[in-house]
């Protein structure tokens, strides 16, 4: 019999899947990211529907319990996402610095070249 927690997980994962599709539609994520996230949320739906899958997989990978595999996979995924977010923030910081520098140099350049009104 299906448990309430399974229903909740399936509803949430389906919602996340719809968001993933919408973000691709808005060009906010790349096709690669869309594939990755679709894979993640579809896996969540499959595991919620058929929890036996995770037990079989954990046996295959040599882990004791199904939950161990779920936690391990989630941790790796989260660490990867933190790394990606860090890289992206750093890139944005660099862009902001470059913009600030350009603005500083161009403002100086313009004020130097502007003819004096008086």
């Amino acid at each position: 019999m299906i448990q309430p927690i399974q229903i909740l997980i399936i509803i949430f994962a389906t919602f996340a899947l719809s968001r993933t599709y919408l973000r691709l539609h808005d060009n906010k994520i790349t096709k690669g990211e869309f594939v990755l996230w679709t894979f993640v949320w579809t896996s969540v739906v499959i595991v919620a529907f058929i929890p036996q899958v995770i037990v079989t997989l954990s046996d295959f990978f040599g882990l004791g319990r199904g939950m161990d595999l779920a936690i391990l996979t989630s941790t790796i995924l989260l660490l990867y996402l933190i790394f990606k977010a860090y890289v992206r923030i750093e890139m944005i910081e660099q862009d902001i610095t470059e913009l600030t520098r350009k603005l500083a140099l161009e403002t100086k350049h313009e004020s130097k070249n502007q003819p004096h009104s008086r």
Partner: peptide
């Protein structure tokens, strides 16, 4: 030369050096 927002001493040095 004015950085409108704070970007750090290294960034400021680079701007000044470029100028």
């Amino acid at each position: 030369l004015r950085h409108y927002i704070n970007r750090g001493q290294g960034a400021a040095l680079k701007t000044g050096t470029e100028y």
